[in-house]
Design a protein around this nucleic acid. Structure first.
Lengths: 197, 197
DNA sequence: TTTTGTAAGTAAGTTTTACTCACCTTTTGT
DNA sequence: ACAAAAGGTGAGTAAAACTTACTTACAAAA
């Protein structure tokens, strides 16, 4: 697992900003190191001073975004009392963040998972914290008898996370709009009460 | 959208088989054209006679697997009567297929989605058929009053597909085993009756 | 002030790898 | 029989990721 930078020299900041901008216009594979360097006003060599390789740059940018996202989610859930309300806060905060930051969403949902190195990165460590948060809320809900006692926290976490991601996928891939409120309450409704008559 | 081959010359078959084998040991990016050719006993040039580029080869292999998978799913669902039973058949057939063919699962869940070209490929066309099948079953369930009338077929499809994929992700990424029966009945149980007490 | 060690940044390679193209060889339709 | 198409080859090209040897700025110790 790669640790994260403390200092941030101007060159490093410019490189990350340049890359983020480019990710808004094209996909990772189409972006070249030469392009990133030119756009940032630095030389190619400098990029390799701060980042192990092109993928490492991708993971660092994702980490930066995810750190902000995670603290938002933590704040929103802390503000709710019931377990179901906390879960709905997570779903809507996630959909909202993905909606407002398509670059972040695209990196997380489409661009990083193809490489085994991602699952050792500091970015994936944040994702693990995020999914653990969901499980903890579920466990708390079971303990407080808000949820059925035979609920499997791991499975419910997967259902919720899967629903969030699949809802965003269509939006990110085909650049569609999304009714965050309708989608999040719809997901929570299915998961809470089921669809069987 | 790329159309699909009719004939299959020996070289073509060897190339696809070689590539499939290599995908079992390493990820797409790490596999080189030279390696695929050597392993198949053909020259690099021949690969480009049958496949537009390296990604096209990936999509063709995925298409081949998915075609078999989809017909299995269709058979299994046709054998069931109730809507819930059909959905459970889809979930368990999917988890089973992904379990038994990790290469297929890894390609579908991790390796293809980063490229915009995938969403124009014949492989993705199969995925669309698959998700449409789920929606159709849901609509049928609503019509037959098995499911609640206010159920959103698109949303429920996303929840089910998301749950399937997230359940497989852990397994594929960390090479874990999976209790298909427990997972599929667990997912269907959550979606049918909900988790709220 | 001078020295020294380190971080920031550069510029010109090198290597790897996907992809091309002109050329043979075998099969097939008429 | 023979043209045409399909199967297959091997050397070559270009682009892009990465390396490395170097210079400049700059702070702290001497």
């Amino acid at each position: 697992m790669k640790s994260v930078n403390k200092t941030s020299p101007p060159g490093r900041i410019k490189i990350m900003a340049s890359f983020s901008t480019l990710m808004g216009t094209k996909d990772f594979q189409s972006i070249t190191i030469a392009e990133i360097a030119k756009n940032a006003g630095v030389t190619e060599g400098l990029i390799y001073k701060y980042f192990k390789d092109k993928k490492d740059l991708l993971y660092q940018v994702l980490y930066q975004h995810f750190a902000g996202f995670l603290s938002l989610v933590q704040d929103r859930t802390a503000a709710e009392n019931s377990c179901i309300a906390k879960l709905e806060a997570i779903v809507s905060a996630s959909l909202e963040s993905y909606s407002q930051n398509r670059v972040f969403a695209r990196i997380l949902l489409l661009e990083v998972r193809n490489s085994p190195a991602y699952f050792d990165s500091c970015a994936y460590a944040m994702v693990k914290k995020y999914s653990r948060l969901i499980r903890e809320i579920v466990c708390e809900g079971i303990a407080k008898k808000e949820l059925k006692p035979d609920t499997d926290p791991f499975l419910l976490q997967k259902v919720i996370l899967g629903a969030i991601e699949h809802t965003c996928l269509k939006q990110v891939i085909f650049d569609r709009e999304l009714d965050v409120q309708a989608a999040s309450s719809g997901i929570i409704n299915i998961v809470s009460y089921g669809v069987k008559k």
